[in-house]
Design a protein around this nucleic acid. Structure first.
Length: 523
RNA sequence: GGCCGUGUGCCCGAGUGGACUAAGGGGGCGGAUUGCAAAUCCGCUAUUCGUGGGUUCGAAUCCCACCGCGGCCUCCA
């Protein structure tokens, strides 16, 4: 059974049929780097990463255009852009008002700097390019820590990074070119300082999101402001270029109808059309993003790309992940349930646990990120690691060969990761003593899950303690551990238990491990 | 208001018409082990699938209505 994958465009599960099944083209809308990416962002990027890893797996079978089955492994050319251009908060505002994201970041960073925050280091909060570069670098670090394959590949060299994780600011010429091309073909027009895409010229506008121009016009959300739209042909027309000499980030504008539109900045959809085409060609196999990207971003991107290339199809298959909630609630800074990946690492959670917690819920349901879940995930990772470590020292055949097939069957069905992990649990249960064959199976499964290669949290050893979760040994803990060891030696268990309780009160869990040492971890 | 998705045990989550007397993980309980814990291992832990109707020989699974939750309807993964 070839792999089935839900396609946002057709609103149903259907076989993924790439143009060339041995080499799949995949574009993912990446982060806007005006702040650290949060775990919701990463859930979406990790869903794309999991899909990519699955497609590359020898276990994955795809349908070809002629209806045959194509067995893996295969190559996935995966591109993830980095948006480092600020965008107007409101592109309807014709008079240059509104606030740019990078400008908003500047404001925030200035405030933080005043308040004494040091994490921004030498960055000049008044320079949007420095801000973007700073956060882009941090994004890449986090992405690598979480095992995002595209970020690992991009790390090989600056050339690779430009190729696989292009920045919008590196593609301004291409954007200008596509805007001019769209205008010359009659799909775009100039109105005052702006160039707009003429949605009425593209009759498939709305197919992806299920919107119609009618509904957009009468949108009860009340967000289609009309007083500024007089210059547009349709209220749904969207910005391709905005001339604005006051904008901090600005570039020479396109030439429309022989006249140069002034210096300014591109609209926020055009970059992906340009970068996807440059890296992957006119028609791509797969395109992913968060569910909020469906409209307007991907709808607009599709319109631009199809009109520019003259093809009916831009992306053959659209893949969108649902949002992440935290402890059952919408994630928000005011609720205090807003986490970046590095927040969690700093709390001592290992990247593999964070990764598993973020990928273990089916991408098309709202996931609930919880502290308990993070603990469960950490345990699952430890167990998987153990199978490999113990198995490698015990030569032998696999205990059960059916597990790969069952795991694969689950993944083939629209990336049913939860069932796949269920299969893994039952498999682990059936193993009494892991063999080298079992270790091989675990490793093959992990090439899809991407957990075992990630950095383990540092443990620091002292004479009596093994400190986990990045805990730094300090004299107070050390002396308590020493006292407890002494008490245990004298069989004074009342004292020894009291010390354990005291440490628990300070937030540390301890356990006695082989060799007479005590493992100290966070409670 | 429109569109899209979703609602399964104490919790997270599989299952999408008959092998469901509903995976897997966590938690809890009991046992082995341990000075006691931790970890590990063994056993137990939903006659029931948001609510109410309907279709069917048969429904968690299909249909309708209602309720709850989430997303989009020109910043947003």
């Amino acid at each position: 059974m070839p792999m089935q994958l839900y396609n946002t465009l057709t609103r149903k599960k259907e076989p993924l049929v790439p143009q060339d099944p041995s080499r799949i083209t995949f574009y993912t809308c990446g982060p806007t780097v005006y702040d650290d990416a949060h775990i919701g962002n990463f859930r979406s990027f990790l869903a794309a990463d999991l899909l990519r890893r699955w497609l590359e797996s020898p276990l994955c079978e795809l349908m070809t255009e002629s209806g045959e089955t194509h067995a893996g492994p295969r190559v996935v050319r995966h591109i993830m852009n980095i948006t480092d251009v600020g965008h107007m908060t409101d592109d309807d505002v014709a008079d240059g008002g509104g606030e740019d994201k990078m400008q908003a970041a500047t404001k925030r960073l200035l405030e933080q700097k005043k308040a004494g925050a040091s994490h921004i280091g030498e960055v000049d909060p008044n320079d949007p390019r420095q801000i973007a570069d700073f956060y882009a670098e941090r994004f890449l670090e986090d992405a690598r820590a979480l095992g995002l394959k595209v970020a690992l590949e991009a790390n090989e060299s600056e050339a690779k990074r430009r190729e696989l994780m292009p920045k919008a600011t590196e593609s301004i010429d291409g954007m200008r070119g596509m805007i001019e091309d769209l205008a010359s073909k009659g799909f775009a027009y100039r109105a005052g300082d702006a160039v707009y895409f003429d949605v009425q010229k593209y009759d498939r506008y709305g197919e992806l999101s299920g919107n119609t121009l009618d509904k957009i016009r009468s949108g009860a959300g009340g967000r289609v402001a009309d007083e500024h739209t007089a210059e547009k042909h349709s209220p749904a027309d969207f910005l391709l270029w905005k001339a604005d000499a006051s904008h901090l980030m600005r570039w020479p504008g396109p030439v429309i109808g022989g006249e140069a539109v002034g210096e300014g900045y591109p609209g926020w959809h055009i970059e992906c059309s340009v970068m996807a085409r440059a890296a992957l060609g006119d028609v791509i196999d797969l395109h992913s993003g968060g569910e909020d990207n469906i409209f307007p971003h991907h709808e607009c991107e599709r319109a631009q790309s199809c009109c520019a290339t003259g093809n009916d199809t831009f992306a053959r298959h659209w893949f969108h992940g649902r949002f992440l909630q935290v402890e059952g609630e919408k994630m928000s800074k005011s609720k205090g349930n807003f986490f970046t990946a590095r927040d969690l690492f700093a709390q001592g959670h290992e990247p593999a646990a964070v990764r598993l917690e973020l990928i273990k819920t089916h991408y098309r349901t709202n996931a609930n990120f919880t502290q308990q879940g993070l603990k469960d995930s950490a345990r699952t990772v430890t167990r998987l690691r153990k199978i490999v470590e113990e198995g490698e020292t015990n030569p032998g055949d696999p205990t059960d060969t059916g597990v790969l097939e069952a795991f694969g069957r689950a993944m083939q069905d629209d990336l049913n990761i939860a069932e796949a992990i269920g299969v893994l649990g039952a498999w682990r249960h059936s193993i009494e003593k892991p063999t080298s064959g079992d270790a091989e199976i675990a490793k093959q499964i992990d090439r899809v899950l991407g957990l075992l290669g990630l950095a383990q949290s540092e443990s620091t050893e002292t004479e009596i303690g093994e400190y986990q979760d990045g805990i730094t040994p300090d004299p107070e803990i050390e002396s308590l551990l020493a006292k407890r060891a002494e008490a245990r030696k004298n069989k004074d268990f009342a004292t020894s238990d009291a010390i354990r309780d005291e440490l628990a009160g300070k937030g540390y869990a301890i356990k006695d491990v082989a060799g007479g040492k005590v493992e100290v971890s966070r409670k």
